[in-house]
Amino acid sequence: MTNQPVNQSTNRLLYTLQIADNALILGHRISEWCGHGPILEQDIALTNTALDHLGQARSLYQHAADMFNALPADEQKTLFSSTALQNKITKGENIDEDDLAYLRDGWDFRNALLAEQPNKDWAYTVVRSFLYDTFNFYFYAALQNSKDVVLAAVAEKSLKEVTYHLRWSSEWMIRLGDGTDESKARVQEALDSYWAYTGELFETTVVDKTALADGIGVDIAAIKTQWQQRVNTVLEEATLTLPTNTWMHSGGKECRHSEHLGYILAEMQFMQRAYPDMEW
């Protein structure tokens, strides 16, 4: 999928996918902690959060699938390159939420690079969640005003979940940052490392611009200030140092990913690819 401007209904689909992919990929990453959490209670907390993300992804993929099925046939054929999806489309079948999650190839995923970065250790996981949750909180708050009623409804429901995610990750930032020498050093290292993935969250792609002009999207440049303020407040309380590096990774939102996404999809999509339409 190239990044050229597309018509409004296709753009609405791509915009929805961008939000859904963020939820699915970050949710999958967090779910990798299931059974490996440092203590039982936090294991359950993270698994709950992963399921929240997965639930958001499902609603959004269903919405995206409906929009996809309404597209003209010739446009459906050019939108995603995966053979598995094309087989369905050629047969004239409607696609559903599972097809978008399991049958799309990596270069058709639109999640931000931050979401696919590995868990590494507890500090990296907390930092990744904190940086993303803060963004996600202001993003869903603004998306509630979307002219797309489904997006607005998903945003309203998700905001309650995200409010809790943000509380959880903010408190862990403070606990680790203002904790022992070792926890502080490790969370600062994780922050310095994953900081370089925050710029992309606020990058305005063609899809973002078109969605904003269409009245369905969020003005992400406008929420950057709120994000920055909230991050500053928490870091200050956590006695952590705001990273000063300004060089930022980018590409995920335009389907150019780090090597990590391939491994995630290989694990996540294997069953459906190897045994098409299997149910269990």
Partner: peptide, 20 residues
């Protein structure tokens, strides 16, 4: 019962463990 570092975390852990 559950383990937690402080009261705040205990309430949040309780929310995740017992009110799902």
């Amino acid at each position: 019962s559950l383990h937690a570092a402080d009261a705040q975390m205990a309430i949040e852990n309780a929310r995740d463990v017992y009110t799902r």
